[in-house]
């Protein structure tokens, strides 16, 4: 870890002013950034701690929730409104990391955490286009059991590791940003970029831009949601695949369907084409299987993760089946 200075931002303007330094990085709880610094992957010389900024979780006027970026993962998972109206969000958070990490980690930091590709972490001994643009990718022909099959590129097959983001994506969450050039609001699913041939550019955030809040719109009325995570051990493992789904039935037909996938892509992945085919269909396994096929139709696998599309398809069908059953 290289020497660095540490400051705690007193206010949002203070944070933005300090974050304008090109050598600066915003620091949430540090559950990922400090690891990255220890491993020599990130080497900021200025850390701006933003954990004193808003961590409030408040009702919005249109029936949603505004979540301060400094809210802890645990606080969000335990929030009564989240548990009642966005149960998939609560479930997703509780399926991730450990209680200790969730107690520390911030919601804003969760969104900006970086991939857990083991070659990305091996600074000395492995090639990685994310770390060193253009040097090559050791994961593509290496151990890639945990790697992505959707939205990946020949330059990078890393996944975004978050559970929470998958559920937030299913509820159409938006991200509030503030920077030297002002404020803007983007859909969560527009925050992360696909790797293409520039996998080192991971988000659309401009230098010094700060996540200030995450907004959840009001959930669809009478919809049910859940989050299912499949992994290599029962706890404390990243998703091989995960599915967040929201389903609303009306008169025996699917009125609204949202499917978000984790563990398969460089970002929380919304399967919008699959969702579209479901609307108006009868909620049966044949329809769910068709949707699942569409969701995985673009999958590009490597030998280590060739099982993922089938695993994802099966899990999507099972999740939708359960939600439909619960809705009947």
């Amino acid at each position: 870890m290289i020497p660095f200075s540490y400051n705690k931002a007193k206010s949002e303007p203070d944070a933005i002013a300090r974050g304008a330094d090109t050598a600066a990085r915003f620091l949430g709880a540090g559950t990922n950034l400090v690891d990255l610094m220890r491993e020599g992957i990130e080497s900021p010389t200025v850390l701006v701690d933003v954990t004193d900024l808003s961590n409030r979780i408040e009702e919005t006027d249109d029936g949603g929730l505004m979540i301060g970026a400094a809210a802890s993962n645990t606080a969000l998972a335990e929030n009564a409104a989240v548990r009642e109206r966005y149960p998939a969000v609560s479930r997703s958070i509780l399926s991730g990391a450990s209680a200790q990490i969730r107690n520390m980690a911030t919601v804003g930091g969760n969104i900006l955490q970086r991939t857990r590709c083991t070659y990305f972490y091996d600074v000395e001994g492995a090639r990685c286009n994310k770390r060193q643009p253009g040097e090559g990718c050791d994961a593509i022909d290496g151990f890639n059991r945990g790697h992505g099959v959707l939205g990946v590129s020949p330059a990078c097959i890393a996944t975004h590791p978050s559970d929470m983001c998958v559920a937030l994506a299913a509820f159409d969450a938006t991200v509030h940003l503030a920077g030297a050039d002002g404020r803007r609001v983007l859909p969560l699913t527009d925050i992360h970029r696909l790797p293409g041939d520039t996998p080192h550019v991971e988000t659309v955030l401009t230098p010094g831009e700060l996540i200030t809040a995450i907004e959840l719109p009001a959930p669809p009325v009478d919809a049910r949601s859940t989050y299912r995570k499949v992994r290599d051990r029962a706890s404390y493992a990243f998703a091989l695949i995960s599915v967040a789904a929201v389903l609303r039935l009306n008169d025996g037909r699917i009125a609204d369907a949202r499917i978000a996938l984790g563990g398969v892509a460089p970002k929380p992945w919304r399967a919008r084409e699959a969702e579209a085919t479901l609307v108006g269909a009868a909620p049966d396994d044949a329809a769910f299987a068709r949707a699942a096929d569409i969701a995985l139709s673009g999958a590009a696998t490597r030998p280590g993760n060739a099982f993922k599309p089938e695993l994802a398809r099966r899990t999507i069908v099972a999740v939708l089946h359960d939600l439909a059953g619960a809705s009947r």
Partner: peptide
């Protein structure tokens, strides 16, 4: 994860080398 291309272990951490959790 012994990488047969170069003899390097690719998962040298508790995060990537799985052992049973309590669950």
């Amino acid at each position: 994860q012994f990488d047969e291309r170069n003899g390097r272990i690719a998962n040298p951490s508790f995060g990537a080398y799985y052992m049973p959790s309590h669950l």
